[in-house]
Design a protein around this nucleic acid. Structure first.
Lengths: 195, 195, 195, 195
DNA sequence: GATGAATGAGTATTCATTCAT
DNA sequence: TATGAATGAATACTCATTCAT
């Protein structure tokens, strides 16, 4: 009676887990149905296609990242602090939603040359815009070196952080906090010892 | 025998291009055969399975990375210079073999839980070993800060560099040299202005 | 009870329209439900199966044709006039109930080899009986040529008239009256000019 | 070795038979494969989709009709004789290729609103053009009544003849020759006795 | 080396219908 | 009277691979 979509959410969650373990293509609707304890066609009560599930996963992850960075960029703090908070928040989001982000970041290219791609690109650009904006204003306000290229450094940040899905494990020895601290220091002062 | 080899190489090259454009699963043997101007079953004179093509691609890319890092690590230079050379060489390899590396880095997880996976992991570990080794000796020799974690910083380096496949284009505005210079400085001295 | 009936009729009407536009098989119960503004299972309050809708459509059309021809055949008029009236009435029925007749005549074969088929055949035979009967008595009474075969000429009449569903449009340039007049003359005196 | 497509022709023939008996939609690729003694996917060596089979059937029938009517219209004979020959040839074609024509005429509407429809319409129009052209010149040359409408009479001819698929059986009592003779006389001089 | 023919296993999706509420 | 949830059965089509020639 309560139409809260909780069964749909369960489906997304289960599918995400399977997509992470076996890959999107390799996971069949059969697999998802089995895991949910229902028959294959019943899945179509909750979603309209397999691709729709992936779209939802991508949407969820991208929007969480964007909400987070927008809030940070709005805050009345220095670009240096913004950068630190972005690193914190991005790593936390990934580590706490590892399945969602693994699938999203791994499979996102599948939409290339499809209608949904424009949507994806728009979201991606939004995030990158904020990153570059913070780097640029840090430069203008005299916090960051003048010779940094926002685009190239922005990609360094994204690569560094997004690559986490390839090696992070909640059972591993490194905590999100440790990772974040290491990288914040790396991005601000580099590896060389101050003399 | 030389004849064989060249035709096989052509196959790998064509397959790599298609895998990059359409993805490994989405590319059919039919697609590859068509692009080569032969019939589907004829492919099997050169390779023994579709997966074999991917294995070869992974092998080629990993081995190039390893040869390069081994040579660098062997050289009689400081860890700082080693780090710089790794960044240079890794970016150059990716940018000059963009198709190969895009496919390799994107599809490598496919072997998860298969026999080939152990092989992949061994290669990956070899590369990571050298990275961490250089970071550790840089620390020991007093070049790098003492509070850096080789593992976490090593992943930062790999993420930063490997992520290049997601955005780099030979037609784009940024050259491998520029990218490399920006990142070398980032890793050594960070973004903050020296006061 | 009156309420029921009207809702059921609405269903038949909507289904008929959809069957005409998309075909019986291609139209789903979903399509019908949507068009009615209710949910799929609710349809089953009014009909017992999809096939039942088609049965009803066939019944309605066949019975109208039969009522009409029976009335004509009962009338105290010459076979020539009977023939003319049949043409008039058959064309009028089709043109004024184009959706019903299009569906009925197009999909009627679907019941082949099913229980309902005997029923359909009985209705069809009834109509054909009257057509042939009129032709035969016209021959006996000296109105029609003696060398005509009632069966073959009867089929000519049916084909000519029933084919209307394939080309007639209420928006087209030809009125049912014009069509009817042309065909009455065709059947009675043929195309050749009297010399 | 001889690449004569005979297996493909066999497939079309078998499919045609099944489509006639069970209908296009109701016949599955499975059914066709079984009847051919091969596995389902093997069908796709010869055709590229189920719809392709139907397209071929429609093409074959329409083109035979058109070849025939073009030849007749080109001949140096009177419109009256042309009309007679059209009736002869059309009935013969249908009766001798009953399966092909039954499927084609019954399922042709399926392409409505698809790309192939324009092609179908073009073929249909070609045939109808010749029919009307012959009627019109018969009128102009003084053979036919002046009050006949080529379009309406043309449809009478088509309906009468095409309806044959609904009742003709090679095992039935009426031969194509008999049918043809009855209808030729019907169209030329009608049913009324000459006084 | 090359390939036409064939296929086993799989894959997403559709749909009429049922039933408890 | 209405419907959300569920499903058994079907369906067209794909694809890597094999093999006789």
């Amino acid at each position: 009676m309560r139409k809260d979509g909780s069964r749909r959410e369960e489906l997304i969650k289960i599918a995400t887990k399977l997509f992470m373990e076996k890959g999107y293509r390799t996971t069949s609707m059969q697999d998802i149905a089995k895991q949910m304890g229902i028959q294959k066609p019943s899945l179509y009560h909750y979603i309209s296609s397999k691709e729709d599930i992936l779209k939802e996963i991508v949407d969820i992850t991208m929007n969480r990242l964007i909400s987070s960075i927008e809030e940070i960029d709005r805050a009345d703090i220095s670009p240096v602090e913004k950068l630190e908070r972005i690193i914190d928040s991005h790593i936390t989001l990934i580590c706490e939603n590892l399945e969602l982000f693994t699938v999203s970041l791994r499979e996102i290219n599948r939409f290339n040359a499809k209608g949904f791609w424009a949507h994806v690109v728009a979201l991606r650009d939004k995030y990158e815009y904020h990153v570059r904006n913070i780097l640029a204003s840090g430069k203008k306000l005299g916090y960051f070196r003048e010779d940094i290229d926002e685009k190239i450094i922005g990609f360094a940040l994204l690569g560094c952080v997004n690559w986490t899905i390839r090696w992070y494990s909640p059972k591993g020895e490194k905590s999100p906090k440790e990772i974040s601290n290491q990288w914040k220091k790396l991005f601000l002062t580099g590896l060389l010892k101050n003399k």
